[in-house]
Design a protein around this nucleic acid. Sequence first.
RNA 1: UGCCCGAUGGUGUAACGGUAGCACAGCAGACUCUGGAUCUGUUUGUCAUGGUUCAAAUCCAUGUCGGGCAGCCA
Length: 595
Amino acid sequence: MAPSDFIRTVVAQHVTEGRYQRIHTRFPPEPNGYLHIGHAKSICLNFGIAREFGGICNLRMDDTNPTKEDVEYVDSITEDVKWLIGGWADDRLGMKSKGKTPETQSVNGVADFHLAPAISNPKSEILEPFYASDYFAQLYEYALRLVKKGLAYVCDLSPEDTDKYRGAPDRPGQESPWRNRGLEENLDLFIRMKNGEFPDGSRTLRAKIDMASPNIWMRDPVLYRIRHAEHHHTGGTWCIYPMYDFAHCLSDYIEGITHSICTLEFEVHRPLYDWILENLDLPRPLPHQYEFARLSLGYTVMSKRKLMQLVNEGLVSGWDDPRMPTISGLRRRGVTPPALRDFAYNIGITKYNALTDVAVLEHAIRDDLNRRALRRLAVLRPIKVVLTNFPEGKTEELDAVNNPEDANAGTRKIPFSGVLYIEQDDFMENPSPKYFRLRPGGEVRLKYAYIIRCDEVVKDSSGKIVELRCTADLDSKSGGPTAGRKVKGTIHWVSADHAIDAEVRLYDRLFTVPEPDASGDFKQYLNPHSLEIVTAKCEPRVKDAKPELRYQFERLGYFCLDKDAQLSTDKTRLIFNRTITLKDTWAKEAHKSYE
RNA sequence: UGCCCGAUGGUGUAACGGUAGCACAGCAGACUCUGGAUCUGUUUGUCAUGGUUCAAAUCCAUGUCGGGCAGCCA
């Protein structure tokens, strides 16, 4: 069922009214960092609306600040968006033919600019995202138009003075001494700004609105600043760059966007968004801005600045470190697009600044992986078990189900022998009565195999357990005469002689507190145990693991092959990431007894 | 202290003047050759005070609390 929220309600109403020919949204990241799960919320919203109302969602680089942006980011953003919407809203993705810029048409003698998405282009044509920087020429024309209408002026105030003149939220601003320059002078100066005659910071183009407005953003906001800087997309073509407020509304207009959805902090910018569009006398229907609350998620940080800090200071291995809340990090961790979309659906869209419980994300991930993961047997922290009554050297092949949630996944054979590994956690010398795994003198079922009894605990000189000597009920094999015997616990195991080694990276939450950035330095809350690496003993079939598939190591959690496995020179090297553990009610029970 | 926005169980989110529902989490139980999954049951809520109305989570007023806004960032 499609979600319902206040934005979709408005869109649905507009569809009913026939207000627009087609619903058109956009996802407009600035290419100055990697996308994170908060962006995923926005992507699911914008593409979800396009999908539900038969519309299009443009991917647009909001690239008006050359000093902060880079192609590395436009590439990663494009990849992440395509990955997230893959198989779900691919046909709603608005891109354009490579190199294409707005088409100019004359409406009542006035130039209008429009760039439609290349929806039905032949496949041979190379598509790329939209770029706000593709509209710099048109934006410049629009600015000229504002100057000619007496609604914008060139201001010579220094950055510091501009600041002073702006006033404060509770104190009106003061008009710039350059505010009332003549039309011709403004025009001449602005053109010369564009031509590169003035140094950075010496002048700006400002909208002439109201320095006494209670809304700071209406106090003659800067529209253009001088920046003699190379731009990642337009190169050295420009030395003046439009500000967000000027570029964004007009980019929306140029692309024919109907619903421009952004986060709450832009709410106070909406009057300016409307002011610019309304004062340009544009012929086509104007886009409107709607705001929703950005995502904040427990036990992580979401700001690009902080994520960048983690990367730059080497606190994580990169933007795609599996502990990062970035889309690339989640992908590498093994999270799938449907899980992320399901999460986005579940958290909803409101204007309330909420802190979302990570449990909601974790539930979405488990729910998805439970259905798709192939089950395998692997032991993370092995302890040796010798079956004293099992014929030495004998190997049996046992049948195991690949996925109990999916009958089509079939079965496989697992080798069984008299020397095994089981999980250290699955044996306790002096457990509580509620523990129903292996204990001295106790019985446990080996999954798909026999019921065994622990007869002897062998320790080394330091007292460390090195081996468990057990006897198997040889009639209790799955399908055998006493297979129906009820034993409280069932544990996983691997035949020692047949086991293969794999490096397994066990990830945990990156921070130790729900709100790492609530106060002080967020880095002090970094979880020192967010990554632990072990060498696991795995059933032989694990060597056939494929990077696109997901696995459940039974009773442990969900795992996937890490990209490092493919990059390694030794092709047989196996490296798994733990995406998430299984729900562990025993851990909760065990924890209770400590309290 | 100017302007804008918000407030529904523990956490999120529905209900748009007419029985406060859902998800997650929690708790209890059933089932289980994964202490997983599944199933059943269950605890807990409309920020406050007034007003309008036959009827208010919903409309109005005031207050309280929380968030945002003073880049030539987006």
